Simulated scan of single mutants.
Amino acid sequence: MKKKIIILTVLAIILLGGGAGGTYYFAMASKYINTEDAKIAGDLRAIGTPGAGKLIEWNYKEGDSFKKGDILGMVETTPARGNTPAILQEIIAVEEGTIIQFNGVKDQMVSPTSAIAMSANLDRLYVTANLQETEIADAKIGNKVTIKVDAYPDAVITGHVERLGLGTNSSFSLLSSSNASGNFTKVIQRIPVKISIDSYQGKRLVPGLNATVKIEK
């Protein structure tokens, strides 16, 4: 009899715990949209040269920041006519940013069609999150967002929804998703959402970091 009472007590505790967990999950789902399909992102800019020639000078290494109008480097270009002196052309920054990748080598031949560096404004990063199509109706521009970055698990970063995508990710795919076989499997589509970051909380954020977001409905 005593053993039966113990078993019933344990079952009751399990059921109560499961019920409490289910209630908590339902409460969270009714208040927030959660997704781990999110990354820190930024507007990357390819830096090219004003003309074809030799890269004779480069003034910034990876991690260095610059302002609009700064001279990033210098190219020595040779005019089409061989008897004309070479011309020095400055590589001028069209906007502020930070060099995040440099592929050039001094004295190498360069051309305007090939990027020698990549830059991004690390002070204007944002989060790109992909929401299921069944969730997008609850996402509104201006909704508050809690952001957790995998690289800094103890930091709580806040933001807000800035823009909702105007198409699903698959609609921008280069590969056609049309089905000519007659067989059809419905797949939940995902829509990209841009989330502005209110404050970095003193953390060093860079494009590509994984994140988890919780969007208030």
Rank of each mutant, 00 (worst) to 15 (best):
V94I: 05
F66D: 06
A117F: 10
I56F: 02
T146N: 14
M74N: 02
L125D: 00
E96L: 01
L88D: 15
G17R: 01
L44F: 05
G18Y: 10
W58Q: 02
F102I: 05
M28V: 10
R124D: 12
I99Q: 01
D138A: 15
I136L: 06
N103E: 02
G22P: 11
K31I: 08
G104C: 04
N83Y: 07
G22S: 05
A137F: 09
V94H: 08
E36G: 12
S111R: 05
A41F: 07
W58G: 00
F26Q: 11
V145H: 01
D123H: 12
V127S: 00
A52N: 11
Q89Y: 00
G73W: 05
S114E: 15
R81G: 08
N34E: 10
Q101E: 15
T128Q: 02
K68Y: 03
R45V: 12
N34I: 07
I92H: 07
K54G: 03
I136C: 00
K148S: 00
G104N: 07
N59W: 01
V75R: 04
I56P: 04
V75F: 11
S119M: 07
R124V: 01
G97Q: 04
P79Q: 10
S111K: 02
K68H: 08
A137W: 03
Q132N: 14
A86T: 13
I40R: 00
K39V: 13
T77L: 07
E76C: 07
T35M: 02
T113F: 15
Y126Q: 04
T49P: 04
L88V: 08
A120D: 06
T113D: 12
G42S: 13
K144T: 11
F102Y: 09
V149L: 02
D138N: 09
F102E: 11
P85C: 10
G21Q: 02
Y24Q: 01
V127R: 06
Q132F: 14
T77A: 10
I136R: 00
S65N: 09
E57F: 02
A27V: 13
A93C: 00
L72F: 04
T146R: 14
G21D: 08
P79C: 12
A86R: 12
K61N: 07
E76T: 09
S65C: 01
N130P: 00
E90C: 00
R124Q: 12
L122I: 14
S119V: 03
G42N: 13
G42T: 02
M28F: 13
P112L: 08
G82C: 03
K39L: 09
S111T: 03
S30G: 03
A137G: 08
A46E: 14
T23G: 02
